[in-house]
Nucleic acid binder design. Structure first.
Length: 285
DNA sequence: GACAGTGTTTACTC
DNA sequence: TGAGTAAACACTGT
């Protein structure tokens, strides 16, 4: 599910719940999640999370003692859920881990903290991972990411350069994490709609004014989504067990066959760049 | 029951 | 090097 706004919401909630808590034990329920690293548990038990950062959709955890990082990627269906020592999800509202049947058959890793709180890492499809890396590995992985909305390197000067010598489609370019980091299928479709460009156009046909619109809306759509807790369709994704409500703001994604809010034309859906792609053929050129 | 589709990324082609 | 496709997997919806 998650794109950058959803991962950022997860990061913030994890930060508020698990920092400075000592890891008492770890249950590894599926070897693939930790990339079959036999030292995973041994490396982290007794240690403490001290920082959680993010680049694009990649979470990066830092520890008090372990000299290295744990990278966490949710891919399509990964989720973290936190339960406090009373079993309350997110540490104190009406939901409990019984409401989520935790742990369940898709729970892959469980962190037990001193004081009896728990962090569950669930993933249905087994694409997600929690991986230990050295500081050098972390640096080189981070260096591979493109410019990211909401950070200082997301400037018009840098954005304009991503179109140089490229002939791929707008959608394929914006989905490429090495070029722009954080955008996924939902927000690319939404940004193209707001910028009034068709996502399958090749980037060499874009006018400067259109590139400027994309620059603006790629960032705006993600910032608005973070403010609303992200986009959630049918799975709860955040450690607090709460749903984001940015799905109420989606103008084209998942709206195939329904009328465009601006012109009333029916929203189209095609497959492009290997992904479901939504657009209004009247509003977007 | 079979099969297409799913929000990500990467390895593999050409 | 860039671009397109399939595959990793387990579900849901038709």
């Amino acid at each position: 599910m998650p794109e950058m706004p959803e991962v950022e919401v997860v990061r913030r909630q994890l930060e508020s719940h698990i920092l400075h808590k000592e890891i008492e034990s770890i249950e590894l329920l599926h070897p693939k999640i930790t990339r079959k690293n036999p030292e995973f548990r041994e490396a982290l038990v007794g240690d403490t999370f001290i920082a959680i950062t993010r680049i694009g959709k990649l979470l990066t955890f830092q520890f008090k003692h372990y000299h290295g990082f744990m990278l966490g990627h949710l891919k399509m269906t990964g989720q973290f859920i936190y339960a406090d020592n009373q079993g309350q999800i997110g540490g104190g509202h009406s939901l409990t881990k019984a409401d989520f049947n935790l742990p369940h058959k898709h729970t892959r890793v469980i962190f037990h903290f001193k004081g009896n709180s728990t962090l569950y890492f669930n993933d249905m499809r087994l694409f997600a991972y929690l991986q230990l890396v050295t500081p050098d590995e972390k640096e080189s992985i981070w260096a591979g990411y493109g410019i990211e909305p909401g950070t200082e390197n997301y400037t018009w000067e840098n954005f304009e350069k991503i179109f140089d010598r490229r002939k791929t489609s707008i959608k394929a370019l914006l989905l490429n994490q090495k070029v722009v980091s954080g955008l996924g299928n939902i927000y690319v479709d939404e940004a193209c709609y707001r910028a009034k460009v068709l996502p399958f156009r090749t980037v060499d046909t874009l006018k400067k004014s259109e590139k400027k619109e994309l620059f603006k809306h790629c960032s705006e759509v993600m910032m608005e989504s973070i403010a609303r807790g992200g986009t959630t369709f049918y799975q709860v994704i955040s450690p607090d067990g709460k749903k984001g409500n940015f799905s109420d703001e989606l103008e084209v994604f998942d709206r195939a066959g329904q009328p465009c809010y601006k012109c009333g034309n029916i929203i189209s859906k095609i497959k492009h760049a290997g992904r479901g792609t939504h657009f209004c053929s009247t509003c977007q050129k």
